[in-house]
Every structure is written in C-alpha cells, then in structure tokens.
Nucleic acid binder design. Structure first.
Lengths: 210, 210
DNA sequence: TACAAACAGTAACATTTATCACTTAGCACT
DNA sequence: AGTGCTAAGTGATAAATGTTACTGTTTGTA
C-alpha cells in the first residue's frame, strides 16, 4: 500500500478505483537528468504521468533549433502523449529530463477505456488538455507580441518558479538556445537587466532580484 | 429530415443517434461576415460546430494586436470552446467571421454527457483537440524559427487553401495586422516575391503563381 | 604548472524589422 | 473634370537582433 498512498498524494483528484487500476496496469520508469524521453517524430504508445522530477518540453526546428515551450512537473501529464495516443501518432515535440524523473506509463488502450469508466480520469485528461493549450497560447503571446528583453524576463521568472529558487544555474548559451537566439544577445540583455537592478550576474549562475 | 441529411453530410463520422440528439437539443445560429462571435475574456457556455462559412481565430495582444492562429471551417468545431467548456472558463481567443456562417451551439452540459454516451462524439472531440493542438504548434514553429518572408508565404498559401482560390482579396494592411507587423514591411516583401515570380500584385488583390 | 575547454564580455558590423514622412495610383462620387 | 479617399510604393532613418571575431576568466585536469 506504500505505492497507493504515493499516488493518492501526487494525484489527489483520482478516485480510489482509478488508483487501483493504475497500480495494477501501469509500468514505472525512471530517467536521469539529461535523458531525452521523447523525440520529435517518434511513435507514442503510452501516456506519461509524472511522479517526481522535472521535464522540459521543446519544439524542434528543422535547422536543429530547440525552442522551450513548457515544464512538466509532478502531478502532471504529458498532454501531447494523450493527444497522440488515440491513433498511435508520432510526437510533435521533444521531452528532456532536467531533474531525475520517476514516471508512470499507461498504455493507450487503457487511457481510452478509462475515459469512459472513471470520471476522475476524464476530468484529469480534459484539465490537462485545457491547461496545456492555454500554456501554449501564452507561448504564442510571448513570441508574437513581445521583444527579446521581455521574453528573457518571462523565461527567467518561469525558471525560478520551476526550481523554487531565485538562484538560477544557467549559462547564457543555454538560455539563448531555449529562446532560439544567440548567446551575445542574451549577454547584452542580461547586462542591461543587471544595470536596472533586476539580476545579479555570476559565473554559471545569476540571482533574480525581483 | 432535411436537417438530418445536412448534418450527416457535414459530419459524416457522427452516429445516427448522435445526430438525432444534436437535432433535438441544439440551437442554430447565423452570423454575417465581420461579426465577432467570441471575444477574449468572454465566458463560454456553448461548443460551436460549423456548418457553413469561415471563421478566423485570433490571439489578442494587450496593446490591441490581433494575431491570426487558424481557420475554422464547415465540419469543424471550436477547440477552445470545448476546452473551456468544462468549467465555464473565459475565452483565451477571439473569433471573427470572414464568410457568412451557419453554426450549431451545444450547451456545455450536453457536450460532457455525450462524451460518455456517444463514441463518435468522443472521437470527434479528441480529434478536434489533437488537430488544433498540432496547428498551434505549427504556428509556434513559424514565429519561433522563421523570418517574416517565410511567414508571409505560409500565410498566403494558407489563405489560398482556405478560400480555394489563388486570387487573394487582401490589402497589405490586413496581412500586416494578422502577422503583427507593419504595412510597409508587407509591401516590401510582396514586391520581392513579385520579382521572384511568386505573385502578381494588383490593387486590393493579388494572384499566387506557385 | 601548463594546457585545454567552457563561459562570458565586448566591439564592429550586417541584416531585419519598425517607424516616419511623403508621393503616387486607382476608384467613387459629384 | 475635379475632389477626396484609400491602398500602395518608397526613401530615410532608427532600433533590435544576428554574426563574426577576438579577449579574458575560470575550471578542470594531465
């Protein structure tokens, strides 16, 4: 019953019957920081529920760029894996582990079956769709309406939220890659932010002061 | 039985029972070109199924910009209205009619009920989520990885597809607004495209030659 | 200690996009 | 024909971003 309590804690909205089903029908898997869980173009056969750790979801450009869209955290599910699930579609995104992850893999067939049988699963799936869709709309806002300086601010704040710390362990190059720009641009903008007193820069890390 | 046949033709995947339910429980509504069906921040109480005409879905910026995301056409549904449906959420988007529209409005409560009762409705909803999510990802590709000239090409081709015509009745200003840039930029880029033999420009309209 | 590798700072320059100001062309109406 | 309106063309300039090239600094490690 250890596992049962675990799950109940991380997914409090799930009914007891649903949790029992998950217990008996799913596979657990761990990944290390840096692992790529899902690649663009790969076939998807499972829906993923995150128990522990952190994952970043990217959209990949043809020329090798990788653009950060959002984070996945404990208690959340990969919306793309749910959406593609229905017809064994290929993935439109890339998922990279940033903090050692434990997750649950649920086969497509069950994912669909539970939609009909478990109200709490149905609601979870719809909630996941909705929140991710909204998150992606916010991403569009950022790149459509905002210049790089604002996008950088947003990026740093979101990273701080995800880490739960104002001390950000990021190189300028990493940031540049995830915003699909160049390191020099990020260096310049960070310098300006420092002059405005919004950050304090150090080697390999920086403090958010706001 | 006129209406029944109509619906069956536009939504061929729906089961007969589902179509009967729609017939007896939904409201039909018409809108004129230029009407705004849904505004950012408005509460959503219905899911919309398009029978006839064309709708454009925009994301609005704080400073009054409106950024085109995708088209809605006959046989399709508004994914956002389905997603927000569950909890009477407010709309994250703006929907504008570009060609006189007939549509069906389905109350939230039924939308949810049918998910459990009609397999063809369930599949339609999931399909709608999936295709819209993919479309929005493609939008992100365009603005994250491509420069304005490529985005303009994509925009024109998509418009041609939607209209089913290579003769595009668009002013430079309209295009600029929907790509969130300025008229001058569009004029210049179109001129370049004309020099490359991709379009032929006229007053108030242009021909796509590719 | 010496060397290599990764990170960061920065100047110079190119390119793209935004903005401003003005001109020209086409169309509708009287 | 004359007037006024809107769309479109264009040159000048500014600002943001991308690119190149080089420097210095820190870190790890041979």
């Amino acid at each position: 019953m250890r596992d049962f309590d675990d799950l109940k804690k991380i997914f409090p909205s799930f009914s007891d019957e649903l949790i029992n089903e998950i217990e008996t029908n799913s596979i657990r898997q761990s990944y290390k920081s840096g692992d790529v869980i899902m690649r663009t173009g790969q076939y998807i056969n499972n829906t993923l529920l995150i128990l522990k750790g952190q994952i970043k979801i990217y959209r990949e450009g043809e020329n090798g760029g990788e653009f950060l869209m959002y984070y996945l955290q404990p208690g959340q599910a990969c919306a793309v894996s749910m959406i593609c699930a229905t017809k064994s579609q290929t993935s439109q995104i890339m998922a990279k582990v940033v903090e050692d992850v434990d997750l649950i893999m649920i086969p497509l067939t069950l994912m669909e079956k539970w939609m009909m049988e478990h109200r709490s699963w149905y609601e979870f799936v719809i909630f996941t769709y909705r929140t991710r869709f909204e998150e992606v709309l916010e991403v569009i806002d950022n790149i459509a309406f905002r210049a790089m300086d604002e996008r950088l601010e947003f990026y740093l704040k979101r990273h701080a939220d995800a880490c739960g710390s104002k001390d950000l362990k990021l190189s300028h190059q990493e940031i540049a890659t995830e915003l699909n720009t160049s390191r020099e641009v990020i260096s310049r903008l960070l310098k300006k932010m420092e002059q405005r007193g919004m950050v304090k820069l150090h080697r390999n890390h920086m403090e958010l002061l706001t």
